[in-house]
Design a binder for these strands. Structure first.
Lengths: 209, 209
DNA sequence: GGTGTAACAAACCGATTGGTCTGTATGCGG
DNA sequence: CCGCATACAGACCAATCGGTTTGTTACACC
């Protein structure tokens, strides 16, 4: 008999993540409303009972999807930021490294480039105001972190022209999000890293680096 | 009696556009799958018979939505491009004008900034390959038009650093699309024109203008 | 070793979905 | 004025939708 070989038999976290994985894939492909519960069940290989045990309603699935993406995005940002800070002491170099590291990371992705926040930004009607705030704050995180570094960089290296740190910081996320859209439309994953590197060269030009 | 004042009484084009208008609004708010036919009917104030008279299936509605957006986008580009060409003879100035004019136009918009192409890029599973091509070509249009102007500009004004015209041209659309996403997430329409002006200042810096 | 509870499985349910069908009104060519 | 096609209106339909209910099973705790 081998029935006892099954790992973590009574732990629901794996089922939960399998549901979230399937729901994320389907949402990115058909939109959240187009990702029916039954389709998610089918892809995840779990029962309807399991689904509604973990998520009282489909809306909660959207919330969980957004929360998980937010957490992942936050750790990604912190990781890359601290890596950049370890690689250089200069805030400007740190910024250039940050952009380059993300371009690198985005290049090595198996799945098609995408941002769940962007997907839901075009489907705000299916998410509650709480999750909408999570999305807004998640995007704000990039702005504030980059703007802070930009402010430090400006103090050390006077830029060629006057800059607005918030706008230039937002430009990073805008380029990234826009690159996702172009990349998906053209079915060309390479667009993302190319656009990111273009943004980096923009910064270099600005600071005469 | 004033019954004869009603314009084009037996012409279906108005009904069709009302359906498309409602469907576009709903799609931008809930995604295409979330925009049920009944909801579109309700918003447009037309009957189910009318709908399926104009669109054999819901998929055809998506196609019509994309085709209409594509046509509008093409005329917008041509209009603004020719305006810019009338305002200056220099290709670089024309480019700067183009970006500025679009920023201006996007600022005066009543509705929330959005691009239907981007919305469908995150819902490719609900559109057929034909419409996906329309989207890809629609985005290519901007790249080729801007890249051509960039090539002319480079010939006249040597840039500070070497550039890849295609990538720098794509950066325009990337910034625009990304700005739409940020703008929607933050519920701040002003982001779009600010990001566009930042891209313009990038070009100015690049060409020492 | 009984009891409670988390973690499912799956039949079942009413509402909503995209889509059809039948009928009707309007205008146009012959 | 008579067909005939276009442009609807709205009842109707099977399938799918999100969600509920009623089990069953495994484990932790006492």
């Amino acid at each position: 008999m081998d029935w006892y070989h099954q790992p973590v038999p009574r732990d629901g976290t794996e089922t939960r993540t399998r549901i979230l994985d399937a729901a994320e894939r389907l949402t990115l492909d058909r939109g959240f409303a187009g990702a029916s519960v039954d389709a998610v069940l089918d892809q995840a290989g779990v029962s309807k009972g399991a689904f509604f045990h973990h998520f009282p309603a489909k809306t909660d699935l959207a919330g969980a999807l957004i929360d998980r993406w937010n957490a992942l995005d936050e750790t990604l940002m912190r990781d890359i930021m601290s890596r950049a800070e370890r690689l250089s002491d200069d805030p400007l170099q740190q910024l250039l490294l940050l952009v380059g590291l993300i371009a690198e990371a985005e290049d090595g992705l198996a799945t098609a480039p995408a941002c769940l926040f962007a997907a839901f930004s075009y489907q705000q009607g299916v998410v509650n105001s709480q999750s909408r705030e999570v999305i807004a704050n998640g995007m704000l995180r990039w702005r504030t972190a980059i703007a802070a570094k930009l402010a430090e960089a400006v103090a050390l290296h006077p830029p060629r022209v006057a800059i607005d740190a918030d706008i230039l910081a937002d430009q990073f996320l805008a380029v990234l999000e826009g690159a996702f859209v172009l990349s998906r439309a053209h079915a060309d994953p390479g667009i993302v890293s190319r656009q990111l590197r273009q943004y980096r060269s923009h910064l270099q030009l600005l600071f005469d680096a």
